[in-house]
Amino acid sequence: MSFFGGGGAPQQPMQPDPLFAAQTEMEMYTVLFNKLTQSCFKKCASRKHKEPDLHLGEMSCIDRCVAKYMDSQELVGKVLQAANEKQAAQQMQMQQMQQAMGGA
């Protein structure tokens, strides 16, 4: 029995369920789209209209709003990915330390 882990057979990493991953991704895109739509519509086209179509100024406002929103989401995604990679590296290092101490 090792000091850190309790011994036994090594655990295999869980394989992600592709259906669950697809559903989660779809839910994330739905939330993103709904927030983007609500935010940009409120900023650019919330006035009451008599015309069924957007004016040129409203369309360009929405284009800029969507671009900025997507850029910010991409930046947040990169920061989270870097944090996840750092955490995974730390976990790997901890496992290597545990194995080194268990084997000594």
Rank of each mutant, 00 (worst) to 15 (best):
E74A: 15
G6Y: 03
S60L: 09
P52V: 07
M1Q: 01
C44R: 05
D17M: 09
G103N: 13
S46H: 13
Q99G: 06
F4L: 03
A21G: 02
E74N: 09
Q38P: 00
M97T: 07
M28Y: 02
S60A: 00
F20Q: 13
Q93H: 05
V76K: 13
M1A: 02
M70E: 13
K86L: 04
T30L: 06
N34L: 15
R64T: 04
D53A: 09
Q93A: 13
K68S: 12
G102Y: 01
M92W: 10
Q15R: 05
Q11F: 04
G8T: 05
Q90F: 05
P13L: 13
H55T: 14
G5I: 01
Y29M: 10
G57N: 11
L80T: 07
A88S: 08
L80G: 02
G77M: 10
M70S: 08
G103E: 04
T24Y: 04
Q91P: 02
P10L: 15
F33R: 15
K35W: 10
Q73V: 10
Q23A: 02
Q23M: 12
N34Y: 11
I62H: 09
M28E: 06
Q98M: 15
L75Q: 12
P13C: 09
A83R: 13
P13Y: 13
F4R: 07
F20H: 00
P16E: 11
G103K: 12
G6R: 06
N84P: 00
M70H: 05
C44H: 08
D71L: 14
Q91Y: 04
C40E: 10
K35D: 15
M59F: 08
G5D: 09
Q90D: 03
D63A: 13
E25T: 00
C61Q: 01
